[in-house]
């Protein structure tokens, strides 16, 4: 089913081959495995341009996005942001090596009027972004918990 007809969009962001940068993808895949039919799950590589395109075309009233972040918090800790109210903190930019990353994509979508009425961003604190390395133990442990939390969000949002 295309994103156009889906009321809720879940977007996992990251690079599956770059250590803890893969956490967004890992959580999205867990969510996808048990997602109800009205939920569309997308994976993205962290390009803000691609996110803007998705938000512009999806027209989903609710979006949940999961990405790695580097704020200095303990590895594996999760932060939740409601970006329809405020921009992501500057620390969120550090997890992307692109200038035009997720935080910038969200701000461009806001300026263009394409931000959904509700957009939740989960940031998972990463520990190791080494190429070809697996998720660190702390982040790996957070994947199941966050997938369950997103599942709760989905149930509440559609209740």
């Amino acid at each position: 089913m295309s994103a156009q007809s889906q009321p809720i969009l879940v977007v996992g962001v990251g690079n599956a081959d770059r250590g803890d940068d893969a956490v967004g993808i890992a959580v999205a895949r867990r969510v996808c495995a048990s997602a109800p039919p009205h939920v569309a799950v997308h994976e993205q590589d962290g390009s803000g341009g691609a996110l803007v395109e998705l938000l512009q075309s999806a027209l989903a009233p609710t979006v949940i996005l999961i990405d790695a972040m580097a704020s200095g918090a303990p590895p594996g800790s999760v932060q939740r942001f409601e970006v329809q109210d405020a921009a992501l903190p500057a620390s969120f930019h550090l997890s992307s090596s692109h200038l035009f990353g997720i935080a910038e994509g969200i701000e461009l979508a806001r300026v263009m009027g394409w931000l959904p009425p509700r957009m939740i961003v989960y940031g998972v604190e990463g520990a190791d972004y080494t190429w070809r390395s697996p998720l660190s133990a702390a982040v790996s442990a957070a994947v199941e918990q966050l997938a369950a939390r997103v599942g709760v969000d989905l149930r509440m949002l559609t209740a």
């Binding site: 200038l99 035009f100 910038e104 701000e107 461009l108 300026v111 263009m112 009027g113």
Partner: peptide
């Protein structure tokens, strides 16, 4: 400074 600021004036 970037396209986000530009978009405010040139959407």
């Amino acid at each position: 400074p970037d396209v986000i600021q530009m978009a405010k004036d040139h959407p």
